[in-house]
């Protein structure tokens, strides 16, 4: 494990990898969910993490999104060592560095699409309706800003979720099965959106069962039994 790294001063120059894992492991009692996982992801890469159920994808995603900590190894996010962060530091790095896209969308049902984006801004810094509206327009939902999640289709809800992930300009977008709850047409829309985001230079890591994403992503990392099985 490296020495403690100052949060304010990233380890390396801007060319550093957004994600750097070295010998990462996660045990739950006697169960070893992840073991000796090492890889790096550079800024602007689009990486799909794939593998069968129980392979450790979710555990890895939780660690990458700073919702969990590894029990072994180290995880540098944007040059910052995160393995020993306390909950407050984890919360800070989540709001400043990470945009999360969920399979279940997780929009607040009593807030409009616009307000759901403003909520993320509120936790990050200050709510800005104009910026939130621009983010909705970016995903093609400017005309649905005043609608609540129950008034939106699954695909639209996922686009709101992606807009929310983008709203604070994070260094990394992490997506968990983003098309898992969508029909084929919406799946294509979301995949196209991720392609566009990639073309814009955003760093995207998504966990998926969907082989189509394996085709879209420029790199695929395969997990099996908690270990890195293959990389393409």
């Amino acid at each position: 494990m490296t020495a403690a790294v100052s949060y304010a001063e990233p380890l390396t120059a801007p060319a550093h990898p957004v994600i750097a894992l070295r010998g990462l492991g996660r045990r739950f009692g006697a169960v070893e969910a992840l073991a000796d996982v090492s890889f790096s992801i550079r800024a602007g890469e689009f990486v799909a993490i794939m593998g069968p159920s129980g392979s450790g994808k979710t555990t890895l995603l939780n660690i990458l999104s700073c919702l969990d900590r590894p029990t072994d190894g180290e995880y540098l996010l944007d040059g910052i060592a995160t393995a020993n962060m306390d909950e407050a530091e984890q919360a800070r790095i989540r709001r400043e560095k990470i945009g999360l896209v969920f399979q279940q969308f997780h929009l607040i049902p009593y807030l409009t699409a616009l307000e759901n984006l403003m909520l993320a801004q509120h936790y990050h810094s200050v709510a800005d309706a104009a910026a939130a509206r621009a983010a909705l327009e970016r995903v093609g939902l400017g005309h649905r800003a005043g609608h609540r999640p129950s008034q939106l289709s699954g695909g639209e809800q996922q686009r709101v979720c992606i807009a929310r992930a983008l709203i604070n300009e994070p260094a990394l977008i992490l997506a968990d099965e983003p098309t898992g709850n969508l029909d084929e047409a919406n799946e294509r829309t979301i995949m196209d959106l991720f392609r566009e985001l990639h073309r814009e230079g955003r760093t995207i890591v998504l966990v998926t069962h969907n082989p189509a994403f394996g085709e879209v992503a420029e790199r695929t990392i395969r997990l099996a039994h908690g270990r890195l099985e293959a990389e393409r």
Binding site: R92, R95, H106
Partner: peptide, 16 residues
Amino acid sequence: APEIGLAKALGADHRA
């Protein structure tokens, strides 16, 4: 609970 979990995932700290 899901709403609180979401707030925390979005970066809300304990104080928020």
